[in-house]
Amino acid sequence: MSKRYAFLLDMDKCIGCRGCAMACKNFNQLQPDMVWRQVYPLDESIYPHRDRAFLSLSCNHCDNPACLAACPTCSYEKRPDGIVVHHQETCIGCSNCIRSCPYGAPRFNKAEKHAEKCSLCHERLDAGLQPACVQACLTGALQLIDLNAPLPGGLVQYPAGYPNMPRLNPSTRFILPRAPRLARR
């Protein structure tokens, strides 16, 4: 069976440093205002302390990608290993993918006038390397996994604060964060 690549975010280890997102800008040479990965703090109603637990998200490389279905120019492609690739060179900048993706993965590049998004660094994967963001994660919170291989227990597909979209079947998996016992005044 072929691979199905996916991100695993261990929110219990994630420190919200944004190193993953900056490493992505660094390797993929994004425009100064562009990001392909964003780190979203969890609301206090989800994690009890403000700005202390995070969802680090880029593209979820969905099983049934909304972007791919929405794109009128066939600029999205799903590789057999699950990676959803956007081809900037055929994009006409209609933004329909941006409207359609519930996760905000495709974003509009104003300077070059097209949509773009996380490629899961497939050029790196094809060379036997980890995606830039995964390599950058210094706590081991962000990992690359194969959904078609045996997975560790305790993984969550739809943590609170993350759009629940069973029709799309996003590939990213999560481990939920814990909060410390507190002694405070």
Partner: peptide
């Protein structure tokens, strides 16, 4: 609405999947 209106005709490529292509 398009960043590249000159290639608007390519928006008809994905009639198989995209409601936007079909609409167009």
């Amino acid at each position: 609405h398009l960043a590249d209106p000159l290639r608007a005709f390519t928006a008809l490529s994905n009639v198989g999947h995209s409601w936007l292509s079909r609409e167009g």
